[in-house]
Nucleic acid binder design. Sequence first.
DNA 1: CTAAGGTGGGTTGTATGCAAACTTCGTCAG
DNA 2: CTGACGAAGTTTGCATACAACCCACCTTAG
Lengths: 214, 214
Amino acid sequence: MQTSSGPAARRTAYERLRDLVLTDPAIQGTFLTEGDLVKRFGLSRTPIREALIMLASDGLVDLIPHRGAYIRPSDDREIRETMEVRQMIELDTARQILDSGETPVAVMDDLYRQQVELPVSPDTIPDFISLDQRFHASMVDAAGNRVLSDIYTRLRVKHVRFGISATWTSADRPTQVLDEHSRILEALKSGDYDATAAAIREHIAQTQNLLLSR
Amino acid sequence: MQTSSGPAARRTAYERLRDLVLTDPAIQGTFLTEGDLVKRFGLSRTPIREALIMLASDGLVDLIPHRGAYIRPSDDREIRETMEVRQMIELDTARQILDSGETPVAVMDDLYRQQVELPVSPDTIPDFISLDQRFHASMVDAAGNRVLSDIYTRLRVKHVRFGISATWTSADRPTQVLDEHSRILEALKSGDYDATAAAIREHIAQTQNLLLSR
DNA sequence: CTAAGGTGGGTTGTATGCAAACTTCGTCAG
DNA sequence: CTGACGAAGTTTGCATACAACCCACCTTAG
């Protein structure tokens, strides 16, 4: 995933383009041309081209010469593969955290509490998603491996493309997620790797099922 | 890691720039300006700028506004973190391969044989490195997870930046690597995960030690 | 009717001009 | 001697012009 610093126009183009790809299901499977984006964003081709190149590096679009940027729809295979990698990383992280003996879960605890206190309503779904993302990211960060954290961040971007937000619209999903997060936290605090691993597997399996059944 | 397809000038700029960053230790810690590269490559700024953006996405350079592209020297921490992630991926892959019951090591076998038959000389070091890279990549590919394979490919690029080629100049290193690869292969064929994991850990530990002691 | 060939429209690829921003270095006051 | 200040030079950021290329459509010969 790209950092968000840098020049203004390119940054704007990158962020708007990313949000477009990630949040508009209608453009999946279509080609975006630079001309379209010039009209849509009111920027010149240069920053748009450069943003497209960054998006392509993130794996969010495919640049087809003389055709445009293809927004590849996510398929079940990619979802399964991504979830497999995510599980591998989270399980490995849990192992490292528990082996280190320190179990630094203060940040996760705080994020969990914030999520508990969040009222359940359509308006708060983005907040739920943000806290969810930060909850998991903080666990991986706790392992203290920046290379791993970067990879994990890139993976999370894919979740959005997979339509993760739709999985939160079900009325009981927030409660369920909180419960699953709680189990992960408690298992970590107890220092029990097998219980932690089971909780993580369960959480990811639930997410994957929801993503695949859309 | 970027794919190598696409337009000619940008592709040229990307590949030459990548090779420059990966093979010239003298430019580590320096800034490359677009003007330098225009003179060096004989291309206009546009393809060079776009190649720099791709390199930055690969994590090989840092783009500093109005300063240039900083070639960050690799440090011990990054080497250790990369090796940790590499080990996580290879161990997970081994587990998946063995769990699948198929153990498709034909490609690895072939690559191993080619490496055995390679004469040991300074001229063949690039071939050793290429076969080594393909040996490990084919193991990860055998897991059949494209998302994982992509991540692994990106990681391997870092190895080059870490100066992996220098680890092959020692007279007995090729023999040692062949021995370690042989142990991994045999363990995989025997279906013994613990033995496979031990062989992989040993191989990565040896590599890491050589990289750190440079 | 079919297939081959050409032509036009549209899209990206590359080069370049200009503006803005930053760095650097010299100068000067304290 | 040190630090602030300013001006010049350098570098990137953005815009735009033109070239190259691809594709789709139409025409035409068989």
